[in-house]
Each structure stands twice: as C-alpha cells, then as structure tokens.
Design a protein around this nucleic acid. Sequence first.
DNA 1: TCAAAAGTGTTTTATATACACCCATGT
DNA 2: ACATGGGTGTATATAAAACACTTTTGA
Lengths: 224, 224
Amino acid sequence: MLDRLCLAVDCVVFSVSATDLQVMLIKRGIPPFAGEWALPGGFVRRDESLEATARRELYEETGITKIYLEQLYTFGDVDRDPRERVVTVAYYALINLKDQSIRPSTDASQAQWFPVQNLPKLVFDHERIFATAMQRLRAKVRYEPIGFELLPPKFTLPELQKLYELILGCPLDKRNFRKKILAMDLLIDLGEKETGVKRRAGKLYQFDQDKYQQLKQKGFNFEI
Amino acid sequence: MLDRLCLAVDCVVFSVSATDLQVMLIKRGIPPFAGEWALPGGFVRRDESLEATARRELYEETGITKIYLEQLYTFGDVDRDPRERVVTVAYYALINLKDQSIRPSTDASQAQWFPVQNLPKLVFDHERIFATAMQRLRAKVRYEPIGFELLPPKFTLPELQKLYELILGCPLDKRNFRKKILAMDLLIDLGEKETGVKRRAGKLYQFDQDKYQQLKQKGFNFEI
DNA sequence: TCAAAAGTGTTTTATATACACCCATGT
DNA sequence: ACATGGGTGTATATAAAACACTTTTGA
C-alpha cells in the first residue's frame, strides 16, 4: 500500500443548439491557470464513487441533474498537472437543453457553452480529453442510440438527422436516413406535430427505450 | 487538493492455445485473500504513468515484455477493496506465446493460464473486470486488427480463423472468412508453409501493419 | 403566391450469406 | 489407400447508396 495520490474526475458535457454541437467549459476561478477555460471537474472524495463525483461536480457547477454519463478514459501522465501528480478519470455527458438550462454563472464558477468547432485554449491536457470524447461520441453514436440523449423526449426526424450531421460532421441523405431509422421500428409516432415553427411542422416521435432494451437482449444492433 | 487515495492497475492478459482463449491469473501470496486467484496488478507509483505501471507489473510477475496493451476501464466503487479505498485502472493485454513464455512461478507469484470458459473464483471485483475485458475483446476484434497480436508474426489462415472463433464463440464459414480477410489485402503472402504439422501444411501470412496504418488514414475500416 | 423545409419510392450497386468438392500430406 | 484438414468459386439474398418531386405551412 504505497504512494497515495490525487484522483480527479473531468467531464466533457455535450449539448446541441440549432446550429452547433457544443461543449460546456468552466472559467477557472482559482490557480493554477485562473481565468482560463477548463472542463468541469473536481477531486474524488474518499467515500464517493467515480460517477458520483462526476454528478456532484456537474450539479455544483451547473445545477444540472438529468444527465447521460459514461466513463471515457483515464488520463494518468505523470506531468499532466504542474502542482503534483493528479490522475483524472474522464467522463462524457449528454444533455438536452430544452428540459433544463445551466444555472447562471456565479462568482465561483462561470459555465459557458462553446461550439465544438471553436473552442478556446484549454488548461492541462483538457484538449486531449476533449478530442478523445469527440472521437468516442462520433464512433458510439453510430452503433448505440445515445443521440437521443441530446434531444428532448419529443423530437422530429429532421431534428434527429441534423443532430447526426452535427456529430458526424457530414451531410446525410434524408430519404435513406428516415428509411433506416423508421425500419428499426424504435420510434413511437406520437401523432402530434411540433409547434412554434414558421414552416411546415414535423411529426413528433419518441424513442422507445423499453423496446430497444428487449431487442438488444435478442441480439439486435442499432446502427446508423 | 483533498483526499488522496490508492490507485492500482490490474491487467487482463489474454493468449491462445491450440484449443482455448486463455487468461493469466496470479495466485496471491499475501493477504487479503492469500492463496486465491487474482488478475495480475499492483499499485501506481507517484512517478509512473498508468501504462508504465501495467508493463512493470507484468514484467515482475511473468517476465513478459512484448505486449499489446490497451486501457479498458476504471473501477472505482467505494467498497471494492476491503482494506481501504482503492481505485483500479484496468488494462487488457494480448500476447502470443510462440515468441515468449511466462516465467516459471516463483515464491512471490504463481502465474498460470486458465481457459476463459473455466476460470476459478476471483478476488475483489476481478470477475467483473474480466467480464468487461472479454466483452471489449469480442467487440473490438471485429473492427480493429488486434487479433494478430495473439498470433506469432507468421500464421496461417486456419489459425487466424480458429482464433476468431475462439474469441467470438461461434463457428465461421471458412470460404467467406478467407474471402473477407484476403479482400482487405492486408496479409502478406510469405511464400512459406507452416512446419511441424502432420497434415497438409498451410501457407504462412504476415499482417501488414504499415499498409493498415496508411489505409486507416484514408478512412478504411477493418471489419470481420 | 412564394419561400422553406417536410415528407415520400424506386432503381442500382455493393456486400453478406449459403453451400460442396478437390488437393496435399503424413501415417 | 485413407484420414485429416487446407484450399477454392458461384449463385442468392440482403443491405446500402443514389436520386427528384410533391405537400404543407406561415409570411
């Protein structure tokens, strides 16, 4: 039972706006690198699991509780923190902003959304952590139905397609996309239309989690 | 900079025999759980990266140095170790036994191979770690050319197919398997035949790492 | 009535699957 | 000569990709 060291959790929190896939960053209030941008995160307490740390930090810094969280990778280079040895377990998170918004900035923490295409310089090795998260999200969204976590419970097919295009970074054929998604028979047609748009309204759908879990048991693979 | 805690690395080391996919286990020499089977592992030193810890431990316990290593997952449940809080970063490793064999057991550590179908009871949460590794290996072997790490540099197509069948746990069609593999054009035909077999000798191939890296850059995806 | 985005099928192409016999080698 | 496993091709089914017009709605 030799060296003990500091263990942290950092989170790459994604959301979507009308035009962008975006990531939440925190303006650091304390040294080192006070005033610079960082991924939200903090230290693991002795009586707290890793995921609990992630949820606690996100709640403290943004007020958000409903979050899809998944462990990403653990970064343990010896010199990644200039103060002392700190190993960090990175998580990525997906949230939808229609259900909840981030708490207004306080003195202690200034949280802000940035488009993934246009991030400021980040402290420590946070750029590497972000790049890893981006890579994982891009890969995973194709074979697991995690994209829905970024949308409100009721969404239209064009919204879903736009989301995939933002994440994958390339346009998708509308007819083929709809055919593929609908063929899986995992979307419940709610018989409602979206509101508040100034053009033809799209049909609203809901992702059928229960049915997906059942199909998954039987060997079904989600795939875009 | 609050609580410090113990950080460990544990490794799930895979190899193949003629008939089995197997995992290396260590008979613990020290409490807790002395005499019981565990994954090889140990504590991270303050001046050592996570991967360096994994390589050091594997060398100390088995004498093996040529290893494909990849981080698997970090297990951080509060009560996973009865002594005190220990978070462990798990790695999985792939080695081929034709090039090197594990060092004979010493007093300190008794290393032994077990078929994955028939593991003894493991200490701590090591069964969960193993299950996660197995799942990852099964998934990853289908879309990354990591299977080759379990074979010697020169191998035959039937050997490769057998390997995939062991990992995936199901039989594969010989003609379709060969067609798919050869169509990728990533195997170099060495113009040699295997030796020491008492039947028709198979042609020897070598995986073309360089070519694979080039193709990968251009968007090529390995897939079985 | 115009602009803007929603919605809809078919054809072509590529990929996956199913399947059976001959060949080389050692005993 | 026989047993064992290595090596080979084609036909069918399924999935992916390419592609253009009509409909709805609000301004």
